[in-house]
Write a protein that binds this DNA or RNA. Structure first.
Length: 442
DNA sequence: AAACCCTGCAACCGCGTCTCT
DNA sequence: AAGAGACGCGGTTGCAGGGTT
């Protein structure tokens, strides 16, 4: 306990960094790269531990950092992402070029939480506070994200895993058609412990978790980077207008890509996963259409797997049914377009349309999908997750790619085959291994 | 002017995971 | 397979600076 092991060995400085230290570190890393962090302080002539150097570099010295206050768009995006990802600051930061997880975490704790509360939204659940308070009686809601994670997502009596912060904001569940209202997925970990993953049928999706900024007619932000799996619908087409200037997007590894060249606006508009989250994040006036139908394929970028819906109209039947379902709820969008923002405390009855959605669908938590592409695929294919977990890992690529029009995936596949060593995206294979291990198969 | 409070931010800490031996 | 070291993440702490009394 206490200080990091490397700090015991010698008397190391702690606390704020001096300009001289900064300069030393900056000069060293600029010249040699960081390599092994534990050796950096020695090589750079610093009386700091490697961990401290790393942190200083990441949070302050990195050249691609964007300093200064957060823009409104950034704040909006953080709120949206937090609703989906919970306190996964690093993942949230990955969507905000130039921002660090620490910065975002601080912003959240010091500012955004407060703002949401002032607007009557519970910052943990992103549900209206009134609803949360009411729901506390039934023990359905938790104010502690850790509780949420452990009790909702991963019930594992034999092998509890504290610290796995799979926060699932209640009320943001996926909607699937023709499925039971709850499921359990049993799996085993490497130790043979059985894990029961509950995909609970949940309560209401929440209206009003968006700050009022989203209910204005202002032009949506162009602030959407490479959002894993699900999130691109936040942007809607407008955010990725083909008329906008190409924007270089920096990943955490400082690789830039031109979002407009990587994704056509049409593709982006169809990036929407089937299920969802159009309703989570649709800007005003957004109505899901057939174009939103999901034929998912995936690609990897910087070690993360991303999922892409196909632009082709030849999607599978599930996708069309999903689209139909969404369309049938268009009144929902219409009726609620004025209440996407702040919960309108004066008209609490406006929650009603959400019941349309919750009543017909299986509710699977967003983060379940987020963390589990296999589950996502299962949803898309109307297969049981179990069956997918039991697939050989080699076939993982195939069930995602029944849409041959998806060049992105194809490209990445080829790239991975051709450049197994150079391509950082090879992490994807590792991720899949982790996934399958986590869900105990093979 | 001094004491107190509040806020935001930088940095620390502990822990889980990964990699290497 | 096991242990050690390195890395990365999220929660927490401590401090500086500004505002208020």
């Amino acid at each position: 306990m206490g200080r990091h092991s490397c700090c015991y060995k010698q008397k190391l400085r702690k606390g704020l960094w001096s300009p001289e230290e900064d300069e030393k570190l900056l000069r060293h890393i600029t010249k040699y790269g960081h390599g092994c962090w534990s050796s950096v302080p020695k090589q750079a002539g610093l009386q700091r531990c490697g961990k401290s150097c790393r942190l200083r570099w990441i949070n302050y010295l990195r050249p691609d950092l964007k300093r200064g206050t957060f823009s409104q768009e950034e704040e909006n995006l953080i709120i949206e992402l937090h609703a989906v990802l919970g306190n996964r600051w690093s993942q949230i930061a990955a969507q905000l070029p130039g921002r660090t997880d620490n910065e975002i975490k601080n912003l959240w704790n010091s500012c955004l939480k407060k703002k949401l509360r002032q607007r009557g939204i519970d910052p943990v659940t992103h549900k209206p506070l009134s609803e949360v308070e009411h729901g506390e009686d039934t023990s359905q809601l938790r104010t502690n994200s850790k509780d949420m994670a452990s009790s909702e997502l991963n019930i594992n009596a034999n092998n509890p895993k504290p610290g796995t912060s799979s926060v699932t904001p209640r009320g943001y569940q996926l909607e699937m058609e023709g499925s039971p209202t709850s499921k359990t997925v049993n799996s085993s970990d490497n130790n043979g412990n059985t894990t029961t993953n509950l995909m609970t049928s949940t309560t209401t999706a929440s209206k009003g978790f968006f700050p009022d900024k989203f209910s204005t007619n202002s032009q949506p932000s162009d602030l959407v980077g490479h959002l894993p799996i699900h999130q691109l619908n936040y942007a809607s087409n407008a955010r990725l207008s083909s008329t906008s200037n190409p924007t270089p997007w920096f990943t955490q590894t400082t690789q830039a890509f031109d979002i407009n060249s990587e994704f056509s606006s049409a593709a982006m508009s169809s990036f929407l996963p089937p299920l969802t989250a159009s309703f989570l994040s649709a800007p005003i006036g957004y109505k899901p259409s057939v174009a939103d139908s999901p034929s998912m394929a995936s690609f990897t970028m910087n070690g993360s797997r991303y999922w892409e819906t196909g632009a082709s109209a030849n999607n599978n039947s599930n996708s069309s049914s999903n689209s139909t379902e969404l369309q049938s709820n268009s009144s929902f969008y219409d009726n609620n377009s004025s209440s996407w923002g702040l919960p309108d405390c004066s008209t609490p009855e406006k929650e009603a349309p959400l019941h349309l959605m919750e009543s017909q669908a299986e509710d699977i938590k967003w983060s379940e999908y987020l963390n589990n592409p296999l589950l996502m695929a299962a949803a898309l294919q109307n297969q049981t997750p179990q069956s997918l977990y039991n697939m050989d890992i080699k076939s993982e690529t195939h069930f995602l790619t029944n849409n041959s029009s998806n060049s992105m995936w194809t490209h990445n596949q080829q790239q991975q085959q051709q450049e197994p060593l150079q391509n950082p995206n090879m992490c994807a294979a590792k991720d899949i291994h982790r996934l399958t291990a986590a869900y105990g198969h093979v």
